[in-house]
Amino acid sequence: MRTHGWSGTAPADDVEAVERILTAARSAIERRGGEFTMAEIARDLGVTRQTVYRYFPNADALLRATAIAETGRFLDVLAEHLAGIRDPARAVVEGIAYTLERLSEDPYLSLLLTPGRAGGFSAGVTSDTALTFGRSILERFAVDWTQAGIGDAGLDELVEHMLRIVQSFVIDPGRPPRRGPDLRDYLTKWVAPAIGAPTAPSAAD
């Protein structure tokens, strides 16, 4: 770890250095979205670009790392939202619908799931980033997946299926875009049967 620069106050270790870089990236995203440069981050930190490159190979990697770190809060909110839904099909329907609805409100979730420079889908819907995030969503469902007859391999396939659906709605939300009950009714009719018949056609309040 470099001991000079850092606006006169060097981090104690690499962990703190990474956290400072992520904090600078968050500030840059709040200012101008995901279109920051490594030079901009280095300037904000008072270090050289080479110092930032020691921890992140490029701006895309830094953007992804920042988005992943920040989406933990979304996962907690999603878990609370879905806490009363134990039926697998209903949980999947509401999880997809709620995620799509939050995309416009959560800049970090949008960066992770929207096609573009650092979107989780820019490297493919089956990228490690997208699949890991999707598995994190399922693990926060109040669903007993074993009792539902869905093991680890099945969960991985379900994650891929959900991400492909989210991707399709992100790329083309429809004309007019489906929202609210209309979106949930559509997902209940065409997605829920792949998991099992839901106990109700619409989302939990």
Rank of each mutant, 00 (worst) to 15 (best):
L111K: 01
R179P: 02
T146C: 05
T48I: 10
A59G: 04
A61N: 03
V47S: 04
L111E: 03
P181W: 07
D60G: 08
E157Q: 13
R179V: 10
R64M: 06
A153I: 04
W145T: 06
V93M: 12
D185M: 05
Y98E: 13
I137E: 06
V125Y: 15
L82M: 10
T146V: 09
V166K: 03
R179L: 14
E105I: 07
A97E: 08
G72V: 06
A59D: 03
T71C: 07
A130R: 09
S104P: 04
Y55S: 11
G149A: 05
L111S: 08
V143Q: 05
V159M: 04
F121W: 15
V93L: 07
E94G: 04
A130V: 13
R135E: 14
L158R: 08
D87H: 14
R90F: 07
F121S: 06
L82V: 10
V166I: 14
I137L: 13
E139N: 13
L183A: 05
E70P: 03
R73N: 15
D144W: 12
G180A: 04
G134K: 06
A42V: 03
L82Y: 06
G180M: 08
R178E: 01
L163K: 05
T51G: 10
M162I: 10
M162V: 15
Y53C: 05
L78C: 14
V52R: 00
P107A: 10
E160M: 10
